[in-house]
Every structure is written in structure tokens, then in C-alpha cells.
């Protein structure tokens, strides 16, 4: 054994963590499955897929799924929530980076996959009970219905734009997922106990403060509007703006994950927000 990063130790840590917390983890997956199943059963019972409620159903599924993924991210450092648990976690012979990576994999990769699988299973099971296709499969069916209707000959000269648009949509959706993950992971590093609630409240406060500051800024400082009025929007390359914004957005996400790592790396047994 040496001090350089070892994937063998990461595997040992993951195995150890999953086994020691298997009951709680299975319960969490079970709760997600249960909620999804009840929702799917409810929606399937009324067979609301062919009307506007179909969209509501999708958003409800998406909302519950996102919430579960956020809760999963907020549990990343739950092993640091009490002093005795912190001692155990910090004294395991593995580097700080190995411990961080193993927890990130469990709660930010395996967690969302488990949530997605349980949602799919719940949807399929409830649909099976009513002998029709589940909503998730409907979504795929929808994609395959849309594709044949596209006149690809019209797009032949615009393949660059099409692939760019798809890339932007995919990266945009992925960025929303990663942003949520990063924020709740940082929240977990800051407040390992009751992390979800605390991070949610902190986000709400930040959002309120920013809105107020922006409103005050716009009302009292005409230079913001003056500056905006100086820009000739016809000359702006939207291509550049969108990609620039995307890069900045991903840089922010990476910075938040980095902050979570720094906080974890410098964690002590007793420190601010961790007085118990």
C-alpha cells in the first residue's frame, strides 16, 4: 500500500460503504420506487396520456426524479454527520481523494442511476397492471414517431446547425442536472446534517438576495441600462454568446464541485457547522 491514488482502495471503500449502509440505501430506493409507483398507478388509472395531463404527468415524474437526485447529492457526506461517524470515516486508511471519489460515485453516479431505474421499474410495473405501455416507453415511441416525419433532405445543407442545436440541448439539460448535483454536494460538504433542507434554504436566500440586488441595481443605476443600450444586438454573434454562456456555466459547476472537494479535504473533526 502506498500514498498515491489507488482505484483498488476506491473499490474497497465503495464496497464497504454500500454494505455498511445497505439497509438505508435500499430503503431510499424503495421510497423513490414507491412514490413513482403510486404516481404512475394514479396516472395510468385515469389514462391521461392522450390529453394535456400527459405533460403534467411527465413534469411530475421529472420533478420527483430531480428531487430524489438532489436528495441523493445532499447525502454525499452524510457519513460525516455525527462525531463518532466522522471519526470512523476519517480514520479509514485511504486518502482524502479516494474517499471523496468513492462518495461522489455512490451518491452522484450510482444514486441517480438507481433512482432512474426505480422510476422506470415503477412506471413499467404500474403500466403492466393496466396492460398498456408505460409512459417512459411512450416517450421513446414519441421520438421514433417524430424522426420519420422530419424531411432530412431539407436539412442536408444545415447539418452543422442541427448537430450544434442537439449538442446545445443535451449540454443544457446535462448542465441543469450537474448544477443541481454540484450545489447539493457542496451543501452536503458544508452541512453534513440535514443537508437538503439547509441547502434548499440557503439557495432560496441567495436567490432572494440576488433578485433584490438586481432590482435595486436596475432601479438606481441607469448605467446598467445604458450599457445594455450601447450594445447593437444585431451585431452580436449569438453563436458565440450561447457557447460562451455554456462554457461559463460549466466553469461555475466545476468550481462548485471544486469547492466541495476543498471543504472535504480540509474537514476536521470539529469545525464550523460541525459542532456536534
Amino acid at each position: 500500500m502506498n500514498n498515491s491514488f489507488s482505484w483498488a482502495r476506491v473499490r474497497l471503500l465503495i464496497r464497504r460503504y454500500l454494505n455498511e449502509n445497505s439497509r438505508q440505501l435500499w430503503m431510499a430506493v424503495g421510497v423513490v420506487f414507491g412514490i413513482m409507483f403510486l404516481l404512475a398507478l394514479l396516472f395510468n388509472s385515469f389514462d391521461m396520456r392522450d390529453n394535456a395531463f400527459g405533460v403534467v404527468i411527465w413534469f411530475t415524474f421529472l420533478f420527483i426524479g430531480s428531487l430524489a437526485v438532489e436528495v441523493s447529492a445532499s447525502l454525499t457526506f452524510s457519513s460525516m454527520s455525527t462525531k463518532p461517524r466522522r471519526i470512523v470515516a476519517m480514520m479509514v486508511p485511504a486518502s482524502k481523494a479516494e474517499k471523496f471519489v468513492s462518495l461522489m460515485l455512490i451518491y452522484n453516479v450510482f444514486g441517480p442511476i438507481a433512482i432512474l431505474l426505480s422510476a422506470l421499474a415503477a412506471d413499467a410495473l404500474s403500466a403492466g397492471l393496466h396492460l398498456h405501455a408505460p409512459y417512459f416507453f411512450d416517450a421513446f415511441k414519441l421520438l421514433f414517431t417524430i424522426f420519420p416525419q422530419i424531411d432530412f433532405s431539407e436539412l442536408s445543407g444545415h447539418w452543422g446547425q442541427v448537430t450544434e442545436a442537439i449538442a446545445l440541448i443535451v449540454l443544457g439539460l446535462a448542465s441543469m442536472f450537474f448544477f443541481n448535483q454540484s450545489v447539493y454536494t457542496l451543501g452536503s460538504a458544508l452541512w453534513p446534517k440535514k443537508s437538503f433542507i439547509k441547502t434548499f434554504c440557503a439557495l432560496y436566500v441567495i436567490q432572494m438576495v440576488l433578485s433584490i440586488l438586481l432590482s435595486i441595481g436596475l432601479l438606481n443605476h441607469n448605467w446598467i441600462l445604458d450599457m445594455l443600450s450601447c450594445i447593437n444586438f444585431e451585431d452580436v454573434s449569438w453563436h458565440l454568446v450561447i457557447w460562451g454562456a455554456m462554457i461559463v456555466w460549466y466553469a461555475i459547476i466545476i468550481a462548485i464541485f471544486w469547492a466541495a472537494w476543498r471543504r472535504y479535504k480540509n474537514t476536521q473533526l470539529v469545525q464550523k457547522f460541525m459542532m456536534n
Binding site: 500500500m1 502506498n2 455498511e20 449502509n21 462525531k83 463518532p84 479509514v92 485511504a94
Partner: peptide, 22 residues
């Protein structure tokens, strides 16, 4: 620094013990 090599040579039995239910 809590390096792995060092942690394999130090074991702490704290006053309050947290053990998993396995």
C-alpha cells in the same frame, strides 16, 4: 495529511463508538 500509509499504522478507539448494523 491523513495519508493511507500513515492511517494503516494508527488506530483510534474513540470514547463513543459508531458501528454499522451488520
Amino acid at each position: 495529511l491523513r495519508e493511507p500509509e500513515m492511517l494503516t499504522e494508527i488506530f483510534l478507539v474513540p470514547e463513543e463508538i459508531s458501528l454499522p448494523s451488520i
